[in-house]
């Protein structure tokens, strides 16, 4: 199939084309379509641009290798968001453990620690928007389950049904998570603005 015709295809048709004919061009179009929304989702969840880039790369590598695992019953977007979300959650847990360990080491040895390199933070690097930074910092303080739901709903603009599918929960749980996440964020922002 020609490149021009492939662009007009839906996500589901593209993945089918990639599955059946091993058409790498279809994969590349999917990558172009989803790289930025996924980057946005994972960056808001982790708050680290470099780690986020690695996770999205890994997501597309997984998509390439395990393309046959996709079944046409599910929506392609929810499938790829699930892969990225799982990888992001794994990375977040690793970082949490590392942080606990480094804090333990710090209290035991009383040594200094490496200051994280924030040169790649896009919000600081490009427009230096302080408000964005404040909101991002507040968002990172929200518990991870609520944060994920809030990002998918309010930043990515997904439906409750899609979020439920990505997070493997029911719609009721999703709604309550979003509500609680918003409430936490509201409280955090209120405290920040008071200061």
């Amino acid at each position: 199939m020609k490149q021009q015709n492939l662009i007009e295809l839906s996500d589901e048709e593209l993945i089918l084309e990639f599955q059946k004919n091993d058409n790498v061009e279809a994969f590349e179009i999917l990558m172009r379509r989803y790289k930025n929304p996924l980057m946005n989702y994972v960056y808001r969840f982790l708050g680290d641009y470099e780690a986020c880039t690695d996770i999205i790369q890994e997501t597309f590598i997984k998509l390439y290798r395990y393309k046959d695992l996709y079944s046409s019953i599910a929506k392609f977007s929810t499938w790829i968001y699930t892969i990225a979300g799982n990888l992001a959650r794994t990375e977040y847990r690793k970082r949490k453990k590392r942080r606990i360990l480094s804090i333990d080491a710090l209290t035991e040895k009383d040594e200094g620690f490496d200051i994280p390199d924030e040169r790649y933070r896009p919000d600081i690097e490009t427009d230096n928007d302080i408000k964005d930074e404040i909101i991002q910092k507040a968002l990172l303080k929200v518990s991870d389950t609520y944060r994920e739901a809030v990002i998918l709903r309010d930043i990515q603009g997904m439906s409750y049904e899609e979020i439920a599918e990505i997070t493997k929960t029911n719609e009721g749980t999703v709604k309550s998570r979003i509500n609680r996440g918003r409430a936490q964020l509201q409280k955090l922002l209120k405290d920040i603005y008071k200061e």
Binding site: N36, N40, P122, I135, L139, I155
Partner: peptide, 15 residues
């Protein structure tokens, strides 16, 4: 307010 703030966040793009 929170929803408006979150929607107004700058979009992050891939390298």
């Amino acid at each position: 307010y929170v929803i408006a703030k979150l929607k107004g966040l700058k979009k992050v793009s891939a390298p």
